[in-house]
Each structure stands twice: as structure tokens, then as C-alpha cells.
């Protein structure tokens, strides 16, 4: 570490604090909102002094939305469950398909390999709505509309290119001779892939999986068009809070807190993999 004067350290601390506050403020504010009733949220001027309540969370977990006019049932917890199923399912499928493909693209230059890899990336270029409407018709015909599997399949448009391209880069960073050294000692290419390449690329795979998970979790449009009420994830489910009697800000905030918790926890947990991922470049190639 470099030596700094105490003043410098204090100033540095303040600067970091400002940056953190700036970026964390929306989340902090949502957290505060989730602990207030709609009335306290909407008072003017806003204040951070209030009597905290857990009623919003209670309403969401119980599945009952009580407004001052009427009471209606919502199914936010099953939305949350859907989000988990869809995101985990699509990331898992994308890993199973994408990691071996990424390895193949990184290690073997075959005819058209660059074209295929680019085509997969180009899935990210098209506006989703353009493909979604025809896709809906097809899906209805083959019975995939409104199924988890159909949705997970469509989610590959988001997850697969991401995993393929990020993981490919990590595989390319591993010197092929490290694998060769293992193969020549009497091991098949598959055991080399499993025992050498996968562990070395693990930080990269984790980082790519995390990103893919976040993208899948935050997806709105695919689920909006292709899923009916019982398959909808939180992003679409949140629409239910816009009720005839007004927008339930408190409950929306509580729902947001609940729905960002898994991704936030995952990101915090995976932080060390991301750091390891960055230091992978230090391996002599």
C-alpha cells in the first residue's frame, strides 16, 4: 500500500462514500418506501422520518392487496417462483449448451466457425418484439406457448450468446499447451476438458452465468407476450400493482426489494469469482 497523509485518507473516504450513496440511493429509497404505507410515501414534502411498517411485505406474502377501496388477491410469490424457475432454467440450459460450444469455438477453427459464432451473437441485435409475434403463433401451434420449457427456450436468445462469447474469451486465454500437457500424460480430451479447462475457466463461467442470470431475471417482454398469468415472472407480475384504485407504491417497493434480493445476493457472493476471473490473465500462456 502507498502511504497517504491522514487528510488524504479522510478525503478519499468521503469521496468513496459519495459515490456509494449516489449509486445505492435508488435501492436505499426503495427499501424505505417498502416500509411505509402509501399515505406516508405520497405526502409532500417527502421525509425519511416515518413509522416503519411491514404491512406491505405481509400483503405480498399473504397474496392479498388491500387498498382503501377494495381488497384483491395477487399472486406475487408465485411470480417470484416463476422468475426463479425461468432464470435458473435458462442459465442452466445456456451453460450446458454454451460452455462446450464456447470451448469448441475457442479451440477449433473449423469452416464457418466465426460465422456461426457471430450469428449467435446477432440474436442480440434484433428487436425482441420483431421475433416475438411470429414466434407466438408458432409456439401456439406446437403447444409451447405458455410453458416453462417454451419460455426457457426463448430466453436462450438472451443467455446463450452472452455465455458463449464471454466463456469463449476465457477459454482462449488458457494456453492450449496446458491442456496438451495433460493429454500427453495419457488422458482423453474429455477428461482434459473436465479436469483442466473447466476449472481454469470457472471464474469466467461464473461471471458469465451471473450476468446471464441478471439479464434473464430482468427480462420483461418475452414473458409479457408468451406467458399467461400463472407463468409470469416478477417483472410482468409487478403490473398487478397498478390497480383501478391507484398505484400501490408501498407494495411495489416491497415487491422490488423481494425481487432484487436474489440477484443482489448472487452478485455479492460471486464477487470473488469476478475478481479471480480478472486475475486469470496473470497465468503465463
Amino acid at each position: 500500500m502507498h502511504h497517504h497523509s491522514p487528510i488524504e485518507r479522510v478525503l478519499r473516504g468521503i469521496a468513496l462514500l459519495i459515490v456509494v450513496l449516489f449509486f445505492m440511493f435508488p435501492i436505499f429509497w426503495i427499501l424505505l418506501m417498502s416500509l411505509q404505507t402509501n399515505e406516508t410515501i405520497l405526502r409532500s414534502p417527502p421525509s425519511i422520518v416515518f413509522e416503519p411498517t411491514l404491512s406491505n411485505y405481509a400483503a405480498i406474502i399473504a397474496g392479498r392487496l388491500d387498498s382503501n377501496v377494495a381488497s384483491m388477491g395477487i399472486d406475487f410469490m408465485s411470480n417470484l417462483m416463476n422468475s426463479v424457475i425461468l432464470s435458473v432454467g435458462s442459465v442452466a440450459l445456456a451453460l450446458v449448451l454454451g460452455v462446450p460450444a464456447a470451448y469448441a469455438f475457442a479451440r477449433h477453427k473449423f469452416r464457418g466457425s466465426e460465422d456461426i459464432a457471430f450469428t449467435l451473437l446477432s440474436f442480440r441485435f434484433a428487436p425482441p418484439l420483431l421475433v416475438l409475434l411470429p414466434l407466438t403463433l408458432y409456439f401456439q401451434q406446437i403447444g409451447l406457448a405458455d410453458t416453462y420449457f417454451g419460455l426457457i427456450w426463448v430466453y436462450q436468445l438472451i443467455c446463450l450468446p452472452l455465455i458463449l462469447w464471454i466463456v469463449r474469451g476465457y477459454f482462449e486465454d488458457i494456453s492450449p499447451d496446458v491442456e496438451h500437457a495433460y493429454r500427453i500424460a495419457g488422458h482423453s480430451w474429455f477428461s482434459t476438458f473436465r479436469r483442466i479447462s473447466l476449472p481454469l475457466a470457472a471464474p469466467g463461467i461464473a461471471a458469465a452465468a451471473l450476468l446471464a442470470f441478471i439479464f434473464a431475471w430482468n427480462n420483461f417482454i418475452f414473458a409479457l407476450v408468451l406467458a399467461s398469468a400463472d407463468k409470469q415472472p416478477v417483472t410482468v407480475g409487478a403490473l398487478a400493482f397498478v390497480t383501478a384504485s391507484g398505484i400501490q407504491y408501498g407494495q411495489i417497493a416491497a415487491a422490488v426489494v423481494l425481487s432484487i434480493t436474489p440477484t443482489l445476493a448472487l452478485a455479492l457472493y460471486a464477487q470473488r469469482y469476478l475478481v479471480e476471473g480478472l486475475s486469470l490473465g496473470a497465468v503465463k500462456g
Binding site: S175, D177, V178, H180, A181, I184, A185, L200, V283
Partner: peptide, 11 residues
């Protein structure tokens, strides 16, 4: 058995 120019030790 082979010794590689780039060493290729398993990190």
C-alpha cells in the same frame, strides 16, 4: 512425454 516451450504448468 513432452516439455513445452511455454512451460504450460497447471496454475
Amino acid at each position: 512425454a513432452m516439455a513445452f516451450e511455454g512451460y504450460s504448468l497447471y496454475p
